[in-house]
Simulated assay, not measured.
Amino acid sequence: MTNEQKRIGWIDEFKGFVLLLVCLYHVEHAFPQAQMGMLHLSTLRMSAFFFISGMLFSTRRFPDFKSYLVHKTRVLLVPYILLSLLFLALDPVLYNFDLFPKAPRMTVMNIKPEIATVWDYIYWNLAKIFVAGKSSIGSGPLWFVFTLYSVSLMFYGVQKLAVLTARIPMLNRVQHDRKAKIATAVTAIVSLAGGWMLYKNHIRLPLGIERDLTVLFFFANGWLCKGALKDPRLRGDDTRGKNILALVVATIVAFAAYAYLEVPDPNFSIMNNILGKSLPIFVASSFFGIAGLVAAFILADKLPDIAPIRIVKGILRNISRNALVILAVHWYILLVMRLLFRDTFNKPGIVYLSIAIVAAGVIAAIPLFRCKLYRLLGKQPASVRDALNIQE
């Protein structure tokens, strides 16, 4: 492993951890008896995911927008559509409509449809996929794959606009970059304001444009921070003790501030652009939550390379690499359990067995998709060993 790879190795672990939180939240949502405190992390999970995605934004391999568009369409949009349709076809409600009352409710652009037949159910699921950009009921979490696709394309345009804005004669490279970053930051703030205004006025737009505006704020801030967060001096090789102490303090202070500011709200949803009662609280709690996670994972990157730590990091990296499969499959398993076995599992103590069942199902599905159904993921085929690998 090169120094460059090692220096930013915590990023995949960060993504894997956030995706794990998403899965646990869905368990808690499907079975209310599973009390894991996930509601308290609502303003953190998706904000952190899009922040770290912004850090990874790069157009270096793409000479123009067309090539970037083709790449993102292949690895994000096509998998979103194919997986959404696959899990719609596997939805138990299609084969036993009596299960419909137990299925998650659906809303399409403020419309709460009246569904009386299987064909109504199929029609509105297709509307969710292609009009609202929220995926089918059978693969609900894939909404943020589509959102990541949309926001990546939007941010490409933001970057081009920022560069044009910064083209002032007589500026050197450093000044030019600073102007471009200021333009990007201003655009991010304006975008968040637009998302907030649409939320306050209960406006839902096609393809989830209102949530794109909200998400673009976090995506842009991730990109703005990536220079500092990828700085090799963060490894603290020369002042290791001082650097670690600073990270410990930063982690504690950030999470304490998050705990103080965060207000649990069962209706909060970035997917639906429902952002809470206060914009400053939403932004501040998200900021401190993201800061706490970033500091914690940079700190974890400095821990001794012993087997238990290596295994945990490897599992998180594997979750990150297999995000598409995990997002779709864990939700589908929970959907089936919710429709068929909710009363069985939604009991104190027993409910936590659902986590083991979901984990086992996901582990079994990863090699199936990575080895046989890889075209649905926009990936190259992998061996079972590579698909489940948790080594460096």
Rank of each mutant, 00 (worst) to 15 (best):
V75Y: 07
L126Q: 06
Y123I: 13
F287I: 06
R173P: 00
E262D: 08
H71D: 15
R167C: 08
R233W: 11
D301C: 09
V358W: 03
F217N: 04
F31H: 01
W331R: 10
N110V: 12
N389C: 14
P63M: 06
V329Q: 02
A382P: 00
G227V: 07
Y123W: 14
E114L: 09
L21F: 12
S42V: 03
R385H: 09
K15G: 00
L376F: 02
K66G: 02
I203W: 14
A291L: 01
R173A: 15
I270C: 05
A254Q: 10
V215S: 00
N110W: 06
F268C: 04
T251V: 03
H26P: 11
R61F: 15
S150L: 05
V263P: 01
P264I: 03
G241Q: 10
K179M: 14
M109F: 15
V158R: 12
A89R: 03
R240A: 15
L327P: 00
V163K: 09
G194D: 09
L99A: 05
L19I: 15
A34Q: 00
H202G: 11
R211K: 14
V325A: 07
V336N: 07
H29I: 12
T147L: 10
I111T: 12
F144L: 01
Y80Q: 14
V158S: 15
P32F: 10
L335E: 01
L335H: 01
F268Q: 02
M55H: 11
A220V: 07
L20G: 06
L161I: 06
L334Y: 03
A166M: 01
A360D: 09
I350T: 15
Q35T: 15
I81L: 13
I122D: 09
I115T: 06
A48L: 05
Q33G: 04
I363H: 04
P104T: 00
R321V: 04
G194N: 04
I115P: 04
I355F: 12
N243F: 03
S269Y: 06
F219M: 07
A250Q: 14
E13A: 08
C371Y: 08
Q33A: 15
Y121A: 08
V248G: 08
V253Q: 11
Y149G: 01
L20T: 15
F217Q: 07
P63I: 06
K72D: 01
D12S: 06
G292D: 07
A259W: 13
L261V: 06
V384I: 12
A193T: 08
P348A: 00
I315M: 13
I333E: 01
Y352V: 07
